[in-house]
Amino acid sequence: MKAADLAAQFNLTVVAGKDGLGRTVTGGHCGDLLSEVMANAPVGSIWLTIQVHQNIVAVAVLKEMTAIILTGGNVPDEEARAKADEEKIPIMLSDQRTYDLAGMLYSAGVG
């Protein structure tokens, strides 16, 4: 599934990195500890996290993830948005908790 289709299907608001919406989601990861995400996130992931600072974009780029979803109503810092635009990593927002959204994505066969 393309990142853009995922955003539409699950009512996610895309707030940055729109140029990356054409890339495909092939997996998923949930995590807020950056070294754990560095160790374990699969390539092509949609990454669910509550971290909002610009360093999440570097993690997503280096792990070759497809997009980031900030859960629980969190919003990215200004620097994170700018970095996401520059690196073409979509950042999407959800009011749902990580557990609930991950369950929905998983049930829908994402990843």
């Binding site: 807020d32 500890l33 950056l34 070294s35 600072h53 360093n55």
Partner: peptide, 15 residues
Amino acid sequence: EMGFGAGMGLPNMDK
């Protein structure tokens, strides 16, 4: 709070 400090960086590098 920013998600650092899991104490996994050096072990990740070593691995």
